[in-house]
Amino acid sequence: MSKPFDMELFLAGVLTGSHATQQRHLRQARIIQAEISERWQRQTPWAWQKKHVAWFLEHRLSGRSEATRYYYLLTVRLLARRLQKTWGFNL
Results as ranks from 00 to 15, higher is better:
Glu35Cys: 11
Ile36Leu: 12
Gly63Ala: 08
Asp6Leu: 05
Lys85Ser: 06
Arg64Pro: 00
Thr16Tyr: 00
Arg24Met: 02
Thr16Trp: 00
Pro4Ile: 06
Gly63Pro: 01
Tyr71Asn: 03
Arg81His: 10
Leu9Ala: 13
Leu61Cys: 11
Ile36Pro: 10
Tyr72Thr: 09
His19Asp: 15
Gln41Ile: 01
Ala34Ser: 06
Thr86Gly: 15
Met1Thr: 07
Arg82Pro: 03
Gly17Gln: 01
Arg82His: 03
Gly88Ile: 11
Arg39Ala: 15
Thr68Ile: 08
Met7Trp: 12
Leu83Asn: 03
Ile36Asp: 07
Val53Asp: 10
Glu66Trp: 00
Gly63Tyr: 02
Ala67Lys: 12
Lys3Ile: 04
Arg24Thr: 08
Val76Arg: 02
Glu38Tyr: 03
Thr86Asp: 10
His19Phe: 03
Leu73Gln: 15
Lys85Ile: 01
Pro45Lys: 02
Ala12Ile: 01
His25Gly: 01
Gly63Gln: 15
Gln28Leu: 09
Arg64Ser: 11
Phe56His: 12
Leu9Cys: 08
Arg77Ser: 11
Phe5Met: 05
Lys85Asp: 00
Leu79Trp: 06
Ala34Trp: 00
Ala47Met: 13
Ala34Glu: 13
Glu58Gly: 04
Leu26Ser: 05
Asn90Glu: 14
Tyr72Phe: 15
Gly13Asn: 15
Ser65Gln: 12
Leu91Gln: 06
Lys51Ser: 12
Gln84Ala: 14
Leu26His: 07
His52Met: 02
Gly17Met: 08
His25Ser: 00
Ala12Asn: 09
Leu11Asn: 10
Leu57Asn: 07
Gln22His: 03
Gln41Arg: 14
Arg27Val: 01
Ser62Glu: 15
Leu91Trp: 05
Ala47Ser: 13
Leu57Tyr: 10
Val14Gly: 09
Ala29Glu: 00
Gln33Met: 06
Met7Asp: 09
Leu57Glu: 00
Ser62Pro: 02
Gly13Asp: 15
Pro4Thr: 11
Thr21His: 01
Arg82Gly: 04
Arg30Ala: 03
Arg64Met: 14
Trp87Asp: 10
Ser37Tyr: 07
Leu91Arg: 10
Ser2Thr: 13
Ala12Val: 05
Gly88Val: 13
Leu9Phe: 02
Leu57Pro: 03
Ser18Asn: 03
Trp48Asn: 07
Thr21Val: 06
Arg24Leu: 13
Ala67Gln: 10
Val14Phe: 04
Thr44Gly: 04
Val53Met: 12
Gln41Tyr: 09
Leu78Asp: 00
Glu38Phe: 08
Leu79Phe: 00
Arg64Leu: 14
